[in-house]
Design a protein around this nucleic acid. Structure first.
Length: 692
DNA sequence: TTAGTGACACTTTTT
DNA sequence: GTGTCACTAA
């Protein structure tokens, strides 16, 4: 038995053929089991390239790759294929895009691109922002796609006014995407599913590449993913899925826990292994976690058994406002660091929403502590980065309309609103991609002559660079393009602050650096490949690893990004009603709250040695301080839920009648940093830590 | 007609 | 803090 696995883990590692369901609780050594299993398969003669492991996030994939490589030794040429669902689908679709009517170099639209298309679609059908916001439309479309609802079917499923509008917009949206030769993230799955469904030969070819399939975080699979897994594993039936229904936190993306609960029905001969021993957290932390998750009704009743007894009792920090919260948390970390028992990388600050880290970041900067903000895609959301990337997208895929519209006049080159309007009108009426209209823009009656010339120059310029791509290296072409466009001057002109200029130009240079790194590590680098990696967040290059994982820094991330990770010292911040649980879930009630509870559970179970929970008594919203209510989860984990229920008046279906409050008293008088609040949970005194 | 400035509202979670 | 809209100067 390898390396001291317990009997359940051993069974999971050595059951090598046929379907296998591993119900793995938090901290039960799941990742270890999975990598050992891959090693075991190879030891038993399976060629590594015949093994496919699918994960949900890039982080999980990267970690699994790393662990597998460490276990198998470096010298191996052949590696098991370990990737996320989405990158797997991209690779499949790039091979077969034509049969679905897409160009092989199709663009992948991210959230920002999706919203652009959504905005344009809504404008076309004359829907105002206050009737249906582009962001909400994107969410609704995503929900439909997760349920494999086609644009034509959406109308019949719509109930509310908003849904009807969304159904109309969905048609336009999908038409625009198709015309732009682009797919969104949901399409990646949907198209793969469709491909397998309609083209049996393709399915067989793709499924036949692998003899073993492994799916991590199976509780998070949505309908499409579920069917793709079935299609891939249906032949050999060597399917191992690993998951935990208590950690299902992607219901809002169409994930269905039923997939993991019904596994035995789909694969009747399946073996089931339960990993219920928790090696990660101390007993004190697990007690809290178990107490919380019990409040969820629809779940497999199970209790994680702690392997590490005792432990420091989790503390609850109650702070005046978000600034005080950040200050106290950082001060706590700082004192831990100076006494020499911990390193920065031992700490994680976990939060619900992406607006929360701001206060913590500024405190960390002031304290001069190293930190990494994980996941906040901020770099790729920078205006200049998106601009540069749009040029690259347009070089690869001329039909990419979102990219074209973004940069047709950036930097300004005399193609104004009127000119663009004329192009769009022509494109719509001829239903041709806008790129094709550019060629004869001068002949359009409503086209201003000056703009027509600018368009001709613009088109010619891009054609030139596209041709250079065939003979020169991608870094050369892109550097040439950036200097030709005069981005540096443009930045100097538009931003006054020298520091800001530097930062913005540095971002553009960083894109070129990343391109260089990509070119270096790939045998046949292409611009399209680079863009795929970026779109999928699949940048597992050395640079990134060194910057992010190896660097000894405090980690800041959302609860969603924290899944699958562990840290000795965890700070779970912002436990307030409206934040965790989030107000959008509070409005829906029911299942949404259960998911928030699981989210909280995931946060708690990330902690190995020490857990600190914090909340602010007031929080800035729209620049004004507003009082907050402690999260219901706090009452639940401290065993005060019943008391709380009696104390909080329940004013029917979600009416916040607190309008009467004068907006003039934002400062709260008394300080009571670590004392029990009127209706709040108690602060628990620290106990002597005892290591397992 | 286009470029530049200022006011405005918007902020769940992710591939 | 950022993208969009409306307004003004060229």
């Amino acid at each position: 038995m390898p390396h001291g696995l317990n009997p359940a883990q051993h069974a999971a590692v050595t059951t090598l053929s046929g379907p296998l369901l591993v119900l793995a609780g938090a901290g039960s050594g799941k990742t270890r089991v999975v990598t050992y299993r891959i090693a075991e398969l190879i030891k038993n003669g399976t060629p590594p390239a015949r093994i496919l492991a699918v994960t949900f996030t890039n982080k999980a994939a990267a970690e699994m790759q790393q662990r597998a490589a460490a276990l198998l030794g470096k010298g191996r040429k052949e590696k098991p294929e370990i990737s996320t669902f989405h990158s797997l689908c991209v690779r499949i679709l790039r091979r077969h895009a034509r049969v679905l009517g897409y160009p092989p170099q199709f663009s992948i639209y991210d959230r920002g691109d999706q919203e652009s298309v959504a905005r344009a679609s809504l404008r076309e059908i004359k829907v105002a922002d206050d009737q249906l916001r582009p962001g909400d439309l994107v969410n609704q479309i995503s929900r439909w796609k997760m349920q494999s609802v086609r644009p034509e079917q959406a109308a019949s499923l719509a109930h509310t006014d908003k849904e009807h509008l969304a159904a109309m917009a969905y048609r336009r949206y999908q038409k625009s995407l198709k015309q732009a030769g682009a797919v969104d993230f949901d399409d990646l799955l949907l198209c793969t599913e469709e491909l397998f469904q309609h083209f049996a030969d393709v399915r067989q070819a793709e499924a036949g590449r692998f003899a073993h399939l492994l799916v991590d975080e199976y509780q998070d699979t949505n309908g499409s993913q579920y069917r793709i897994v079935k299609a891939l594993a249906g032949g050999h039936r060597n399917l191992c899925v690993v998951g935990d229904d208590d950690q299902s936190i992607y219901g809002w993306r169409g994930a269905e826990v039923s997939h993991i609960l019904q596994f035995k029905q789909d694969w009747p001969e399946a073996k089931v292994v339960r990993l219920e021993e928790n090696y990660r957290s101390t007993e004190a932390i697990l007690t809290l976690a178990n107490r919380l998750i019990k409040y969820n009704k629809n779940r497999h009743d199970k209790v994680l058994r702690p392997a590490r007894g005792g432990g420091e009792k989790p503390r609850i920090l109650q702070c005046q406002d978000e600034e005080a919260e950040a200050k106290q948390v950082i001060e706590d970390i700082r004192s831990r660091l100076t006494d020499g028992t911990c390193e920065p990388r031992d700490f994680a600050i976990l939060f619900r929403t992406n607006e929360q880290p701001r206060a913590f970041e500024s405190e960390l900067r002031q304290a001069k502590l190293p930190y990494v903000l994980v996941g906040g895609m901020s770099f790729y959301d920078r205006k200049e980065v998106r601009d540069v990337l749009s040029y690259l997208k347009l070089l690869v895929s001329p039909s990419d309309e979102v990219a074209l519209r973004r940069i047709i006049n950036t930097p300004a080159r005399g193609i104004g609103q009127r000119a663009v309007g004329a192009l769009i009108d022509e494109a719509v009426s001829k239903s041709k991609p806008m790129w094709e209209i550019l060629a004869h823009a001068g002949q359009l009656p409503t086209m201003p002559p000056a703009a027509a010339e600018a368009i001709a120059r613009f088109r010619h310029m891009l054609e030139q660079f596209r041709q250079r791509l065939a003979v020169e290296s991608i870094v050369e072409v892109v550097s040439g393009l950036i200097s030709h466009l005069g981005f540096q001057d443009e930045i100097a002109r538009t931003y006054k602050e020298p520091l800001e200029q530097q930062a913005r130009w540095a971002a553009i240079e960083e894109v070129v650096n990343m391109l260089g790194a990509y070119q270096k590590r790939n045998k046949k680098p292409t611009l399209g490949g680079f863009l795929d990696d970026i779109a999928l967040g699949d940048r597992n290059d050395e640079d990134d690893k060194e910057n992010q994982l190896k660097r000894n820094a405090i980690a800041l991330m959302t609860l969603h990004s924290a899944k699958g990770l562990e840290f000795p010292q965890v700070y779970l911040v912002g436990l307030e009603e409206g934040l965790l649980p989030h107000r959008r879930s509070v409005e829906i009630e029911g299942a949404a709250i259960d998911e928030e509870r699981r989210l909280c559970y995931v946060g708690i179970t990330r902690a190995q040695d020490r857990l600190t929970i914090s909340l602010a008594l007031s929080r800035l919203r729209w620049g004004k301080s507003k009082p907050t209510k402690p999260s219901r989860f706090l009452f639940e984990i401290t065993g005060q839920a019943e008391t709380a229920r009696n104390q909080t008046p329940k004013p029917g279906a979600g009416a916040p009648p607190k309008r009467a409050k004068p907006p003039s008293t934002p400062h709260v008088g008394t300080r009571q940093p670590t004392r029990k609040p009127a209706a709040g949970p108690p602060t628990t005194p620290p106990r002597r830590p005892s290591r397992g």
